[in-house]
Write a protein that binds this DNA or RNA. Structure first.
Lengths: 132, 132
DNA sequence: AGTTTCATGAGAATCATTATCAATTAGGCG
DNA sequence: CGCCTAATTGATAATGATTCTCATGAAACT
């Protein structure tokens, strides 16, 4: 047996593109934007690549109303504050939440705990341009 | 203009069925189980009804890997502790999380905040039967 | 009971996601 | 450097969940 995860042209492009944006993007969006940018990549490849990266922990995966979205994030455990209007995302650390989750799990005897916490709202820029 | 939301046989059945279970169920699951129980309801109706109930705040809606799932819950704001194995769900109140979310929102100038917090793990019963 | 309007259901349409499979390419090795 | 092998790609088809269409049936109101 030889190598495992190959570094291909397509994967590099996807990875690089994800590095240049702060939004969560679906596979379809990544596909569209890469094509629009003159980089031909097939849709199945985008799906496969993003799923593989998520599996490997190289990108964050977020399942929402619009399907599964991905984003390159810092490798530590964290949460997100997302603008509902422009999609801008801010990473958060949330020690109180971690502590609370651990406490709740212990109290109920649950093991193998994972948790999801996302906060969404309207960011200052968008509330300025939209609201008023 | 006259009445708004009618009380039909189908809606009553869906509502009642949801009242008898503690799991989150997808529209498809609700449909299958109602039929299995001898209650004929069409799939589109189940979709429409559950979406309408979620819209009206009568049921909780949870978007996960398996699609959109629904459950009748207490009407207050709360969070869930879910067993990944059997689907059992426990409602939680989480004041520390509320406080933290409000604080984070203020710090970043976000408005119109909503947040999602779900904890999943293996419940005591399932870890006993599965793990060992 | 009559009427009006909304809800239902059967099926078709849509749309995202995944599988199939032949052709291509990355990487290691001689 | 050029070959070999296995992993990757891409075009297309298949799948599967969700939504739409529209004729029929059932609530609510008088």
């Amino acid at each position: 047996m030889t190598g495992e995860i190959r570094r291909t042209r397509q994967r590099t492009h996807i990875w690089d593109y994800l590095g240049g944006t702060a939004e969560f993007l679906t596979a379809q969006q990544v596909h569209d934007r890469l094509r629009a940018g003159g980089t031909p990549v097939s849709l199945p490849t985008v799906y496969r690549t993003l799923a593989a990266m998520a599996e490997a922990g190289e990108v964050d995966q977020l399942v929402g109303e619009d399907g599964t979205a991905y984003r390159r994030c810092s490798p530590h455990h964290h949460h997100h504050l997302i603008c509902r209007v422009c999609g801008r995302t801010i990473e958060l650390t949330a020690d109180p939440v971690e502590a609370w989750a651990a406490e709740v799990a212990r109290a109920h005897g649950f093991t193998g705990i994972t948790h999801v916490t996302e906060i969404s709202g309207t960011c200052p820029a968008c509330s300025a341009s939209t609201g008023l």
